[in-house]
Amino acid sequence: MAMLEVKNLGISFGGLKAVDDFSMTIEKGQLYGLIGPNGAGKTTIFNLLTGVYKPTAGRVFLDGQDITGKNTIDINRAGIARTFQNIRLFAELSVLDNVKAGLHNHYPYSTLSGVLRLPSYRRQEKAMDDKAMEILKVFGLDGEFDYKASNLPYGKQRKLEIARALATEPKLLLLDEPAAGMNPNETAELMETIRFVRDHFDMTILLIEHDMKLVSGICEKLTVLNFGHMLAEGPTAEVLNNHDVIVAYLGE
């Protein structure tokens, strides 16, 4: 069974079809890329998959479960987490607390136990601290657990955002232009991080990206979007050599 099945998805804004008849299948454990020119509809699709927008047509299935039209919280609980092109960390919170923010659905305690600092609260806090540190260690951020998130270098903020998303224990991780604003060294390190996340967490990953070096280096399969329509799909090398893709996207 596929991890994600998107069937004939569409959405219109004021009569304009931003995405029309879009279909895509991503297998479990796959590292998949969604590419296309600016304004092609890529982020709109991410917003449809995560419940920010509700589709006007089509269905979305996550690991066999129909999640079409559900809200963002329910979709996150079903198993989709995302990062954003513009980093959205809790800038004034510590690195540790940013990751703990992603753990709360899995470590519930009552308001009363929290207010009174009861033993059940302290146990849950200790468990969250331990789990958050375990995740931070994977990303090499455990030595900076008490830093303010805003004080991390840009590349490490990107890593922290991925770490926080993983703390929600997703089945599918959506990365929205993870290399945006990175220098070549940071991008190379990010590529290794994404590969490691896929392998270490047995994760399925869908990413939007404009950096073709990153896309060709890590994505096993691509879908190309143009003006809200699918232009091409298939193995990465094959798609990047497709004449229509070169004309529409690479500008040659």
Results as ranks from 00 to 15, higher is better:
Asp199His: 05
Tyr109Gly: 01
Ile208Lys: 04
Glu169Thr: 04
Pro153Val: 13
Gly143Phe: 07
Ile35Phe: 05
Arg117Thr: 04
Ala188Arg: 15
Met1Gly: 14
Leu141Ala: 04
Ala127Thr: 02
Ile67Ser: 05
Phe13Leu: 08
Glu5Asp: 12
Val138His: 10
Gly79Cys: 06
Glu125Phe: 03
Leu172Tyr: 03
Leu222Arg: 12
Asn47Gly: 10
Met1Thr: 12
Leu175Asn: 07
Pro119Thr: 11
Ala149Met: 11
Glu144Gln: 15
Gln124Ala: 15
Gly251Leu: 13
Asn71Met: 00
Glu144Met: 14
Tyr154Thr: 03
Leu152Gln: 07
Glu177Gln: 12
Met24Cys: 15
Thr68Val: 10
Glu177Met: 05
Gly251Glu: 12
Ala180Gln: 08
Ser150Val: 12
Thr25Ala: 02
Phe201Met: 05
Leu118Trp: 05
Ile67Asn: 08
Arg158Trp: 08
Thr56Glu: 06
Val19Ser: 07
Arg82Phe: 06
Thr83Ile: 08
Ala237Cys: 00
Glu27Met: 02
Ala165Lys: 03
Ala180Lys: 04
Asn71Asp: 15
Val115Pro: 00
Glu177Pro: 08
Lys131Arg: 15
Glu252Ser: 12
Leu103Ser: 08
Glu233Thr: 14
Asp97Gln: 12
Ile80Asp: 11
Thr204Ala: 13
Gly143Met: 11
Leu48Val: 09
Leu173Trp: 01
Gly15Pro: 10
Glu233Phe: 06
Ile246Asp: 06
Val247Ile: 08
Thr204Pro: 12
Ile73Asp: 13
Thr72Asp: 06
Leu173Thr: 05
Ala40Met: 01
Ala165Cys: 04
Leu136Trp: 07
Leu152Ile: 09
Leu62Tyr: 10
Thr193Ala: 07
Gly79Glu: 04
Asp20Cys: 01
Thr168Val: 07
Phe61Val: 08
Gly79Lys: 09
Asn38Pro: 08
Glu125Asp: 14
Thr68Pro: 09
Met1Val: 10
Asp146Pro: 00
Phe139Tyr: 12
Thr187Phe: 06
Ser113Gln: 12
Thr193Ile: 15
Ala180His: 03
Glu144Cys: 07
Leu231Gly: 12
Asp202His: 15
Thr223His: 10
Gly33Ala: 11
Asn76Gly: 13
Phe139Ser: 06
Met24Glu: 10
Val19Asp: 03
Lys213Val: 11
Phe139Gln: 09
Val215Asp: 02
Ala132Gly: 09
Glu192Cys: 00
Arg198Thr: 02
Ile73Gly: 00
Gly217Thr: 14
Lys7Gly: 00
Leu49Cys: 12
Phe227Trp: 07
Gly36Asp: 11
Met191Cys: 11
Glu238Pro: 00
Glu169Lys: 13
